[in-house]
Design a protein around this nucleic acid. Structure first.
Lengths: 348, 348
DNA sequence: CTGAAAGCGCTTACAG
DNA sequence: CTGAAAGCGCTTACAG
């Protein structure tokens, strides 16, 4: 009887939690049997099963994860690794969306999520041993810029991982889940053409990120399909920040005074672009139609509300988690591309 | 020799990590000695110390946390528990700021942060056993609305925790860290008076949150100190969302057509309020001065940029972490109030 | 200052 | 289907 009862105040006093041993004693079986029902009840008689479950409920038993980890050699947790400059990523509403849906997806599997940031080289050095030591069973990796050394590190350490978005650069077989950026861009630009727009400019994302690259490609493809010649002055490259969207739009307005539509590679940049357009005394969508990308919370906060391409964040997260879990079980890598969806609002 | 060398491709093949045993053998000492240097090197000769450290480096040894946890009865990790309706909290930029600075503060102590959301009753039920089972050593609790059952739960389970902001409702001694909401509000309203404003309205936060309550109180106090009678029609209550700020402002504009300033209890609501003001054809700050609260990223994205009260997020996070760590070491509870700062920009 | 040994709470072949 | 037993990798009194 190692348990200490709560004292009169009702406050538990260093009451140490029941172990598998207590449960076994209570149920009148061996610890091995208790462990078996904990694992799902294979090879356990219904009677024993029942007795053990009753004891578990009675004692409020919950397994000690450290002890389990020690023998199974599994951490039982998964890391959400954010390998971006912190400022950029934390201000990006997409990050929040992703974090939320990954948390939910992991909670469904009863797996704790360990949040790790690794924006700087120093941080990466610090977390490397943690990751290599298998303190987590796998990692959900968020890192959009080309050539993140973390990828190679994880590969060497044989830590299962899944990237969000295609990792740029030369790597072996790497699992990733991404939205269909190019097709999303094509859809938006096609829609702008079909709405009667003729001179469609674009604000692209950084060209060392898959979204920056692919969405620009989609834009060019759709121009070609409509027999429109691609012109450099119709393109400005931002960094996904609101401020860069505003600056890019000013630049485009100067270079192409008569443009009548702009496809912006992120909602946040579209927000900035809209400010620039309004400040130039032009109306949206009467003078210029604006199409975004993401369908982030800002899209509906804008005035007029933003027509955009919805990224399937929930599906992306769920799929990443599923893929990672499969990989932990020994399955090979895979890449999954998920479709996007055009959401028409008032800005076009 | 249980280690399997990397194969020719350089890819580690199920190489199992070195243990304390390997280190001991390598250094020619006992496992106990290795453990002692791991704990800081008390009672270890310099020579042994040296040999062990060399072996650790040589073998790339990193401690197995599960094994350590099992014997120390410490999880070695801390939970960041978000007990708000998810939508509200994830869209709140303050949350992101807090999460970032807590991650950084914990990283400084080399403690992994486990992210847990508990917005719904069902979620709370699910995480309770996890928390009570001491799968984390303590929790940083984010929950602003009155009467969160999680607080009592943590108290009963004797899990150390520190709240962000004063928890409303009857509780025993609870540790929390908060900004000085009332003083911040007083500072803003005083500043508005001193800028020559006469009819100052306010958009307050939810009245079952400390920020909602205290900032309104500060407003009232400062009115009284300036001999201005408090009038109900000068107050609107929002829910911290952008949309509510806009609605509240419309309401105030109707109720008090001649107001010349408004103190808004959050930057996000101030964003909405500014939209409403502009839509009413009024100018900021010429016709109406707008003061916010938080100094969140939106403050500088607005046009004009927002005058606001800066919350000391970094200090709040650091202090919460320090307090929690102290509590885990057995120290008693404490409450810490941190000063805010007026940041004057273009909206006043 | 150091080593031998017990023990943390589980899981998992291995017999039966 | 079940129990006895070994063992996961550490820490920590306890002797010396």
């Amino acid at each position: 009887m190692t348990n200490i009862a709560p004292d009169k105040s009702g406050r538990a006093r260093s009451k140490r939690p029941p172990t598998i041993h207590d449960v076994a004693a209570h149920a009148g079986v061996s610890r091995g049997t208790v462990s078996r029902v904990l694992q799902g009840g294979r090879n356990v008689s219904p009677a024993a099963q029942e007795a053990v479950n009753a004891a578990i409920r009675k004692l409020d038993y919950v397994v000690n994860r450290a002890a389990r980890s020690l023998v199974t050699q599994r951490a039982g947790s998964i890391a959400f690794v954010l390998s971006e400059t912190q400022d950029v990523f934390f201000e990006d509403p997409n990050f929040t969306t992703l974090l939320r849906s990954c948390t939910a997806a992991l909670a469904d599997h009863d797996i704790p999520l360990v949040l790790i940031t690794a924006g700087t080289e120093a941080e990466r050095r610090r977390i490397s041993p943690y990751l290599s030591a298998h303190h987590v069973d796998g990692v959900l990796l968020f890192s959009s810029h080309r050539g993140n050394p973390l990828i190679e590190h994880l590969q060497r350490a044989a830590v299962p991982f899944v990237c969000c978005g295609k990792p740029l650069g030369r790597h072996g077989a790497v699992s990733y889940v991404a939205a269909d950026d190019r097709e999303g861009a094509r859809t938006m630009v096609r829609y702008l053409f079909e709405s009667g727009r003729k001179r469609i400019a674009t604000i692209a994302g950084p060209q060392d990120t898959p979204g920056g690259l692919e969405r620009l490609l989609g834009y060019r493809e759709m121009l070609a399909e409509h027999g429109v010649r691609f012109a450099k002055r119709m393109v400005a490259i931002g960094d996904y920040s609101r401020a860069s969207g505003e600056a890019c739009m000013r630049q485009l307005l100067t270079q192409v005074p008569d443009l009548d539509a702009v496809f912006v590679a992120s909602d946040l940049m579209a927000d900035g672009a809209m400010s620039a357009i309004e400040r130039a005394g032009l109306r949206i969508p009467a003078d210029i139609a604006v199409g975004g990308f993401d369908d982030s919370p800002v899209a509906t906060a804008l005035d007029p509300q933003l027509t955009t391409i919805r990224q399937p964040w929930d599906r992306i997260s769920e799929t990443m988690v599923r893929q990672l879990l499969a990989q932990i079980e020994g399955e090979g890598s895979a890449t999954v591309i998920l479709p996007t969806e055009l959401v028409v609002r008032a800005s076009t």
